[in-house]
Amino acid sequence: MGQLIAANDLVKAFPASRRMADVLRGHRPVLRAVNGVSLAVGAGQALGIVGESGCGKTTTARLLLRLEEPTSGSVVFEGQDVTALRGAALLPFRSRVQLVFQNPFDALNPRFTIRRSLTEPLRNFGLPAQERHARILEAMARVRLDPPEAYLDRHPHELSGGQLQRVVLARALVTHPRAIIADEPVSMLDVSVRAGVLNVLRRARDELQLAAIYISHDLALIRYVCEEVAVMYLGRIVESGPTAEVIASAAHPYTRALVAAVPVPRVDQDRGDLPIRGGLPDQLNQPSGCAFRDRCPLAFARCTEEAPPLRAIAPGRHAACHLA
């Protein structure tokens, strides 16, 4: 299957000098928010990126969207390296790869009607008014905002969270993108309306054959919308593969902890300790060897000395653990 959008060995280092003394001594520590991430998504495919907050998911998304300059590595879209594109040269890419914001309550201008919010992305397209209107109606039908007249002249505060998130998705679709990247698209919504938004996302992906990347800390949500998943820990992908397989037989201890932590609405459930210790380490003082070792229940001597590379462990599956 062709790759519509791909990341090759992306690295993003932020300056992280917290102490004036460091700066004066010319010592400039950097925080590698993304540290060698490669991934690829084809048309009609969906990839989930999962991990705790602080693992580098949003930075990965921003690099893919070209909202952030990578320190090294490249972004390839429809076979073209877009890493070097700047300014006006980026505009076609921007309309073809769209972001769905996390917080629908912030994503829309509160003073704009829904019609205006949906028209705005088409401003520089030079489309006749009639065509613009047709695009808006098409996008609204796609996200099941029905009938459109019931929404077009309203303002964001008149809509519920679930309706707003559909508007945000419709806005991403009016430019006829080839790829969408959704960063925690339902985390601000009530559980009861998440299902509706996830169903709409999945149908849009199928009907338009979009390449989709969804970011979440919850594997159960990823499972519903993504056939493939990449697990991130401290800026690196530590496991990847078909979502169902990764959940059923996780190879990396971190993935196993994420699986065990998935909330389930059942009364009888395992309430044992999670197979993980504490929280994320200080990003500037990561452990030697395997970055996960201070939280890993299986760590052994070799993990201190040697960083496990991400390697193939089965057809379509990769993991970065000495024991995988």
Binding site: V191, R194, L198, L219, A220, I247, V259, V262, P265
Partner: peptide
């Protein structure tokens, strides 16, 4: 509320 919950 129960049925809307994505179940692993």
């Amino acid at each position: 509320l129960m049925n809307a919950f994505p179940d692993l």
